[in-house]
């Protein structure tokens, strides 16, 4: 699905990623853990193509129509059209842009790219219905401005709703669990689990083991100072929960 080789990236002149190696196959869920400032969110943004981050060395190759293709030169919207989705740690508020209009615009843009027909307003509302039910989201949510005045939990649910609508090949969820109460966390996890398939992959960026009680990862990687310093199975999360990160760093 995605191959990251010797990836180096900087922001505002500071090198944050210092040689990331990571390969993810279809159907896998990978968790990226690590202390604050280790580069987790940077990795997520670099894969999605955030313009503030500059890749100085290395490669990111993504499966496009069965071939591994470098996406480093692609604009963020081109990557999104190929099936890369970033769930934001801090979803952006966009006053004046209606949530359902935004969702439909994004959906139709990706449909057109993939050669499918877009949906009109009515069809789209029908299409949304089961997804809203799954995430326990009220209809009124659609007519509000994107994320404006949403609670922390609503914002994160909105991210998962977008993921459910766009049906990406690779979902990168950046600290989706932070700031969620237990009910919201369960709903978000239910959403992610229901979208899991053998054709799609997920990267969970998280600080805590909490989310991993609800979403079972296949692999766990520990990021420190811009590098993956340890990889393992799901049992690694429990070890980290008990011992913290210090034993790995020293």
């Amino acid at each position: 699905m995605i191959e990251i080789k010797n990836l180096h990236a900087k922001v505002e002149g500071n090198e944050i990623l210092k040689g990331i190696e990571l390969t993810i196959n279809p159907g896998e869920i990978h968790a990226i853990m690590g202390p604050n400032g280790s580069g987790k969110s940077t990795l997520a943004k670099v894969i999605a193509g955030h313009p503030s981050y500059e890749v100085t060395a290395g490669e990111i190759n993504f499966d496009i129509n069965g071939k591994m293709v470098s996406i480093l030169e692609q604009e963020p919207y081109e990557r999104a059209k190929e099936g890369i989705f970033l769930g934001f740690q801090y979803p952006i508020e966009i006053p004046g842009v209606n949530n359902v209009g935004f969702l439909r615009e994004a959906f139709n843009s990706i449909c057109t790219h993939q050669g499918a027909k877009g949906m009109d307003q009515k069809e789209f509302k029908e299409f949304l219905k089961p997804k809203l039910e799954l995430l326990e989201i009220d209809d009124s949510f659609l007519d509000r401005s994107v994320n404006e005045g949403f609670s922390g939990g609503e914002k994160k649910k909105n991210e998962i709703l977008q993921m459910a609508v766009l049906n990406p090949k690779l979902s990168i969820l950046d600290e989706t669990d932070s700031g969620l109460d237990i009910d919201a966390l369960k709903i978000v996890a239910k959403g992610v689990n229901s979208l899991k398939s053998k054709y799609t992959s997920t990267i969970l960026v998280t600080h805590y083991q909490r989310l991993l009680n609800y979403i079972q990862p296949d692999f766990i990687h520990v990021l420190h100072d811009g590098k993956i310093i340890k990889s393992g199975g799901k049992e690694l999360a429990l070890e980290l929960e008990a011992k913290g990160y210090d034993w790995l760093i020293k």
Partner: peptide, 15 residues
């Protein structure tokens, strides 16, 4: 706002 543009772009909407 660059972050707002990126947010929309990351959903497949051209710049």
């Amino acid at each position: 706002n660059e972050n707002e543009i990126f947010y929309l772009e990351s959903r497949g909407i051209p710049k």
